[in-house]
Amino acid sequence: MLSSVLYALLTACCIQNEQAPMSSSLRSILAEPGCVVAPGIYDMISTHLAISAKARILYMTGYGTVASHLGIPDAGLASFRDMVDRVAVMGRAAREAGIPLVADGDTGYGGLLNVDMTVKEYERAGASAIQLEDQVFPKKCGHTPNRPVVPKQEMADKIRVAVEARQSDDFLIIARTDARSDQGLEEALDRMAAYDAAGADILFVESPESEDELRLIGERFPHKPLVANMVEGGRTPVLDARRLGELGFSLAIFPAIGFLSTAKALERAYGDLVATGASAGKDDLYSFEEFNRMIGFERVWEFDKRHARD
């Protein structure tokens, strides 16, 4: 039986698969009061569902994308090409729907020349922003242990190169630091100040460990959009967008809710199928008819009708 969590999510998201109206740019959305939620997407089904839910911003999660595409941990094992190809597919759908896509660019996949190429390719692929982090390569998921960081100046240089490499000022550079877990909040804040000075458009302190720490981050950088990473089961308390907005955050990414809900649902559905030999609980499944609409079969059928031979 599908989990009630995913069933509710799918029901809410996809009763209709209308394209979202053309939205404002990412920069203008983040300039609005309060905090905007960005669901984590990791493949094209999750992308379509998030678009149908009328999300205003999409977040391509590195963890989920690597797990979905390659079935391996988010530990620096996926290549630049693996990721930019995924950006291109999801970016096309986001662009057609008029929704900005924020894409995880890990460490930039190498040195300064790699960062230059990564920014150019992510922008060309249809992302509206790239997230770059200051971990030592190979990087690890931000809510797992043992994440050493590069020297502050090395990352500041990457941010400067990223800003220089973009073709449009509407393509935003997100600077993330992972220093909090091993070096403490003050070091993380100091790094954020350096990356801010280097030209980052959006600042992201990964894995603060209390609401007080979130408040301090918001107080230190009131002049720039801030990212809060809400990972269910992670190191940071999961708050709603209203509270995060009060604390000074502009963007709340929920990278894991999609793949965690899907994994739970599939575990139950496949387990029931293998145990019983039948697709028990079919009333809880997402409608096959609605899924056909969501994935775009209606256009295929209409195309076939227009070009059918008598």
Results as ranks from 00 to 15, higher is better:
E154D: 11
E121F: 12
L172S: 03
G271L: 05
I72C: 01
D310H: 12
T262L: 13
A162W: 00
A308T: 09
A275C: 07
P145H: 05
G271N: 06
L10D: 03
G245A: 05
T11L: 14
L77P: 07
R306A: 14
C14Y: 06
K264D: 11
D212G: 11
V231A: 10
L58N: 01
A31L: 10
M22C: 14
L2Y: 14
E211C: 09
A78M: 07
N17G: 15
K224F: 03
R235W: 10
R166D: 02
M192Y: 00
M192E: 02
T11D: 13
L247S: 09
E232Y: 11
R220L: 04
S181G: 10
S25W: 02
L273W: 12
W301V: 13
L214V: 08
S24I: 06
V37R: 15
I257Y: 14
K264C: 12
F80S: 11
Y286F: 15
D272H: 13
R306L: 15
A194H: 09
L70N: 02
G108C: 00
F249W: 08
G142D: 00
P73A: 00
R306K: 15
A97M: 00
P39E: 05
E298C: 10
F254K: 14
S261N: 04
T144G: 10
S207H: 09
P73R: 00
I202H: 00
G184N: 03
E32V: 06
C14Q: 07
M155E: 06
I159E: 02
I130E: 01
G277Y: 01
P33H: 08
D196T: 09
A194I: 05
L172I: 02
A193H: 08
A252Q: 12
G281H: 06
A265Y: 01
L239W: 10
R86G: 06
R81N: 14
A127L: 08
A12N: 11
D106E: 00
A275L: 09
S23L: 04
I217M: 08
F137C: 09
A103Q: 05
V231N: 04
D240P: 13
Q135C: 10
K282R: 15
V161P: 12
G281T: 04
G110W: 01
E206T: 04
E290L: 15
L10H: 08
D178L: 07
S181T: 11
Y270F: 15
F297G: 07
G76C: 06
Q183M: 13
L285C: 13
L132C: 02
V205N: 05
S261V: 01
P225Y: 00
V87P: 09
A175V: 01
V231L: 11
G98I: 00
S168C: 09
Y122F: 12
L185H: 10
I15D: 12
V84S: 11
D182S: 14
D196H: 13
Y286C: 09
F137P: 13
A308K: 15
G218L: 02
E32T: 11
D272K: 14
G258N: 02
N292Q: 14
A263R: 15
V66R: 10
P151W: 00
K139I: 03
